[in-house]
Simulated scan of single mutants.
Amino acid sequence: MAAAQEDRLVLAHRDGRVGRLVLNRPRAINALTHQMVLDLHAALDEFAADPAVAAVVLTGAGERGLCAGGDIRFFHDDAKLGGAAVRAFFRDEYRLNHRIARFPKPYVAVMDGLVLGGGVGVSAHGSVRVVTERAAVGMPETTIGLVPDVGGTWLLAHAPGEVGTHLALTAERMTAADAVYCGFADHLVPLDRLADFTAALAEREPADAVREFAVPVGVAPLAGEQAWIDHCYAADQVEEILERLDQTGLPEAKEAAELIRAKSPTALKTTLAALRRARRLPSLAAALEQEFRVSCAGLADHDFVEGIRAQVVDKDRNPRWSPATLAGVTAEEVARHFAPAPEELGLA
C-alpha cells in the first residue's frame, strides 16, 4: 500500500494538525497534469471537511522546485487536435486557484526552487506563502506564445508600479526578495531551517512557526530598478514600451528590450491588454474568468503551438511567430481574446 501511495502524483495525508499535500512528479519538476489538479481538488475537499485538520501545507518532491508549471507538452499535442482537453484542464486548474484563495483554513505554500506558471497558481494564492533563498518565481508564458494565467494577471497587475508589466512581458524570474516585494510571497525561510519549519507546522499555528523560523528577506533587486521600470512600462502600447527602453541607455533596460523582442508579438500585445484590464477588475475571480476567455481563445493562435514546439518539443529555440512583428498584430486580433467564451468558470 505504501508503494502505491508513493507512486501517486499528489501525496495527501494528515500529519498532526495539518493536512500535507506533496506534488510528487520530481523528474518533471512537479509539472501539473489534469489528474494532479483533480487530486488536489479532492484532497482540499477532504481537508476542509476534517475538523482535525487546522491547516494545509503544500510542498514539492525533489530538489529542483515546487512546480515548473503545467504539462505544456500535453498542451502542444492537444491543441493540435482542437484543444478540448486543454480547455477542460484550464477550467479545473483555474477553479483550483480560486479554491486555494478562498480556502477556509490556513494554506501554507512552500515555494522552493522553480515556481513557474501553474506552480504560482497553486502557491501564490495561499494565505501563508514561504520562499527559500533559492526560489525562482515567474510567469514564463510569453516565451512560449501564451498569456499569463492561473491568476497571474491579477498578481502582476497589483505588483508595485509597473514591475508586474515588466515581469509579464520579459518573462523574467523573481528572486525570493522580489517575490515578497511583488506580492507573490510573504516570508523567507532559509533552506537550513525549512525542514524544521515544515515539521513544526504539525504542532503549532503557521503564524507561530513563521515567527520562529523566518528571517528578513532583504532588499528586492527589482525595488532598485523601480524608477526606469515605471517610466518605460507606463506606456499603453508594447511598441512605445520598447522605444522607452531603448532610449534610457541603461544596460538593464536594453536587456529587457531584447527579451521582449524575442517573445510572441500576439502574446505580448494580449498580455499587456490583460494586465491593464485586470487592474480594473474587482477580484481574483473576475481575473480568472478573463484569463479563461483569453486562454481558450489563444488555443486557436498559431503561436500557442509554435512556442511550445520551439522551447520544449524540438528545442531549437527558434520560434517562427505569426504575425512575426508587433505591427502585424491588429487591435481586432487582441480584442478577440477577450470575447465571451462558450462557457464561463462561474466564479465571479
Rank of each mutant, 00 (worst) to 15 (best):
L188R: 11
A185C: 09
V150W: 13
A179C: 12
H158K: 11
G151E: 10
F184E: 01
H187T: 10
H158W: 02
H158R: 15
E172P: 01
V189H: 03
L169V: 13
A168I: 08
L169I: 14
W154R: 11
T175W: 00
V189F: 00
V163Y: 01
L167R: 08
T153E: 09
G161A: 09
H187S: 13
H158V: 03
W154V: 07
V163K: 01
Y181H: 11
D178G: 05
G161D: 08
G151R: 00
L188I: 05
L188Q: 08
A176I: 05
L155D: 02
A179L: 13
L156H: 04
A177Q: 06
A168D: 05
A177R: 01
A168C: 11
V180E: 00
H187A: 13
A168V: 08
A159C: 10
W154Y: 15
D178Y: 03
H158D: 09
P160I: 07
V180R: 11
G161I: 07
G183H: 01
G151F: 02
V150M: 08
A179I: 10
H166P: 01
L156R: 09
T170V: 11
V150E: 14
M174K: 07
A177I: 07
C182L: 04
T153N: 15
L169Y: 10
G152I: 04
A159L: 10
L167C: 12
T170A: 15
T175P: 04
V163H: 11
V180T: 08
L188T: 06
A159E: 07
H158C: 09
D186I: 11
A157Y: 03
L156S: 04
L169D: 14
T170L: 09
C182Q: 01
A168W: 03
V150D: 15
P160Y: 06
E162V: 12
G164H: 09
A177F: 02
L155F: 06
V150I: 13
T153H: 13
F184A: 05
H166S: 02
G151D: 02
L155W: 02
E172I: 13
H166Y: 15
E162H: 14
A185T: 03
G151A: 02
M174D: 11
E172G: 15
W154N: 12
D178H: 00
P190L: 12
A157L: 00
D186R: 08
V163F: 08
M174W: 10
H166I: 06
G152K: 08
W154I: 00
A176D: 03
V180G: 06
A168F: 14
A159M: 10
P160S: 13
L188H: 06
L167T: 12
P160W: 05
A159W: 06
C182I: 06
D186Q: 04
V163W: 01
G161K: 12
R173H: 14
A171F: 15
A159P: 08
T170D: 12
L188V: 11
A185L: 01
A177K: 04
R173C: 08
P160V: 10
H187W: 14
M174I: 13
A177C: 09
A171C: 14
G183A: 01
T175M: 05
Y181A: 03
G152Y: 03
